[in-house]
Design a binder for these strands. Sequence first.
DNA 1: CCTGAAACCTGTCTGC
DNA 2: TGCAGACAGGTTTCAG
Length: 269
Amino acid sequence: MPELPEVETISRNLRPHLTGRRVESVQLLWDRALETPSPAHFVEQLTGQVIRTVSRRAKYIWIQLENSWHLFVHLRMSGDLLIQPPGYQPKRHDRLLLGLSDGHWLAFNDTRKFGRIWLTDAPQTILGKLGPEPFDPAYTADVLYQGLRETNRQLKPLLLDQSFVAGLGNIYTDEALHLAGLHPLTISSAVSAERATALHQAIRTVLETGIKNNGASIDWVYRGGSFQNHFRVYAQTGKPCQTCGTPIQRMVVGQRSTHICPHCQKVEP
DNA sequence: CCTGAAACCTGTCTGC
DNA sequence: TGCAGACAGGTTTCAG
């Protein structure tokens, strides 16, 4: 489900329900969702802790505790974090339940079991591997341009690489490349400074629009977002390009379904 | 250095 | 109706 806008939406929705609450109980329903520490240590360390902040970094939900430990949750493909009412009984695919001091529950539900949880006092082990946040003022068009120049990778897999830039996934990468007029197979070092500036703007525009629409809801996963109504290319195979009318084509790049306008997006020489 | 394939999972949809 | 196969918003690891 989640790319930056979806995770940001979830973070914003959780924040008022979690901030200042104490974790009264911990039920780990599927051990392998836990990356670190051991299940026993996890329950022991988390029980009784008060939640200080709820935020997002890249596609991680980042919960800071008052004992200065950090709870990270990555939703991967099908994960979701939901506030459930007092008296809640675990549902199918719930992997973790936290009982909160106001009687509500925080439920981590994840159909495909790809999502992961970390509880650590060393947040840099996770944060240190991540590339810049797209909305960070220090992430300028020139920073992107220099990054593109120093490698020879295809644009699409490069933009999906979370150490290159944080938060983009399959949907928003396709949308940004179309908005910038760049082909996903273009080699990064061949992108001009002008096109890099266009890409920088496009990345921010699609993510900002995604956030304003509370993310995208597709199929049976995730609800509440409406960005799916604004897709220009993603899942629009055969429909006319909004810019030139040429039918949108589907291709596979780096094992990922990829959507382009063959007229607006050409491979740079 | 870079690409592609496979793995981790469950559920839905399509076509025969 | 049944069933095989493709596909799904992510990330890691390994082979070439």
